[in-house]
């Protein structure tokens, strides 16, 4: 059995800000097996993107610092890897897609150049071959009139087209791991599903692992095999996708589920009001003694406020960080 394509163990990332030091990622562990899609879910500001950026060594400098932990790509620790080795891995073996395709593409360089760049950098292709390969990929991701787009600039394309370009750009070197940070958030719903099915198709074709970062549980349900729910830098719950949707344990996970608009009606035929999780994600500099979710949790009790819960396994592959595990009667 090969080493998993990505294995994050006990990763802790600090963020140094004028207001103080905060912990953006707190003892996070997760594994992406070869060809597997893992969903990393949570609200904005819970440390998802920071986790993603630390994999490629791209956390904003000089604010972010990995305090400890390890990130292994196919068994190789990326945190101790030489910067040149890390650069070689970026874009060729681990590729990344970002949320906002408008700002993530360079406005003054042609589409062709931006898609061909990784090929010239990593595969040593000359310009002609790289552009030919880039064109093939743009056609593969079904970019309309791909040949004409080579010499176009990002502002001349629509949002969906730009995200196709981003995907082609990430795929050209046939990476083994794709990190997709909110790949569909900025897109229309119809375009969203097109992009998701495109990603699924490419995953099957290349056999790559995907770390899918999103706040959208609907996207996760469609794409992922396993889901990791993150809050305030910590894993709160982790399970296979079916289990998570059928038996969510953590009050935070349940809150997220109830925040999905479904248009349901109650037994009297009235529309059920969409639930929300009260309050906001804590600022990362805020220190909390007990459970980090205790400030917003509907089922909170004394233990939660004073003691920090650890991640416990409740059944094969289903892990939860919650004091309710020890005291199930208190559940609401």
């Amino acid at each position: 059995m090969n080493a998993p394509v990505l294995e994050i163990d006990d990763l802790t990332v600090d963020f140094h800000m004028p207001e103080g030091v905060g912990c953006a990622v707190d003892h996070l562990s997760l594994t992406v097996e070869n060809g597997e899609t893992i969903g990393l879910v949570g609200e904005s500001g819970c440390g998802k993107s920071m986790t993603a950026l630390s994999i490629l060594g791209l956390i904003p400098q000089p604010f972010g610092k990995v305090r400890f932990g390890s990130i292994r790509y196919a068994g190789e620790n990326l945190l101790t890897a030489h910067s040149e080795r890390l650069r070689r891995i970026r874009g060729s073996e681990i590729a990344m897609i970002f949320q906002e395709p408008m700002t993530s593409l360079n406005p003054v360089l042609t589409i062709g150049r931006q898609v061909a760049e990784p090929l010239m950098e990593h595969k040593g292709l000359n310009k002609t071959d790289a552009y030919a390969e880039a064109l093939a990929w743009l056609e593969h991701v079904k970019l309309p009139a791909a040949r004409e787009q080579l010499s176009q600039y990002p502002h001349q394309l629509s949002g969906g087209m730009r995200q196709r370009v981003m995907i082609a750009m990430a795929m050209v070197c046939r990476p083994r791991l794709l990190i997709a940070d909110e790949p569909t958030t900025a897109l229309d719903v119809t375009i969203q599903s097109q992009i998701l099915s495109l990603m699924m198709g490419l995953k099957e074709e290349l056999g790559m692992g995907i770390l899918l970062i999103t706040h959208d549980l609907g996207v996760v349900a469609q794409m992922a095999r396993r889901v990791v729910v993150m809050y305030a830098g910590q894993v709160m719950e982790e399970a296979d996708v079916e289990i998570l949707f059928e038996q969510p344990f953590h009050p935070y996970t349940q809150g997220l589920m109830q925040s999905i608009p479904r248009g349901l009606k109650d037994d009297r035929g009235r529309k059920i009001r969409l639930n929300e999780i009260p309050g906001n994600v804590l600022p990362i500099t805020e220190k909390v003694g007990g459970c980090k979710f205790s400030t917003r949790c509907p089922s909170v009790f004394e233990t939660c406020i004073n003691h920090h819960p650890s991640l416990k396994t409740i059944s094969g592959g289903h892990r939860v960080r919650c004091w309710l595990l020890d005291d199930p009667d208190r559940r609401r």
Binding site: L58, R90, F98, T103, S104, E117, E121
Partner: peptide, 11 residues
Amino acid sequence: DYIRTAYAKGL
């Protein structure tokens, strides 16, 4: 953002 993208491409 596009600078981050450029780094992520391994340039």
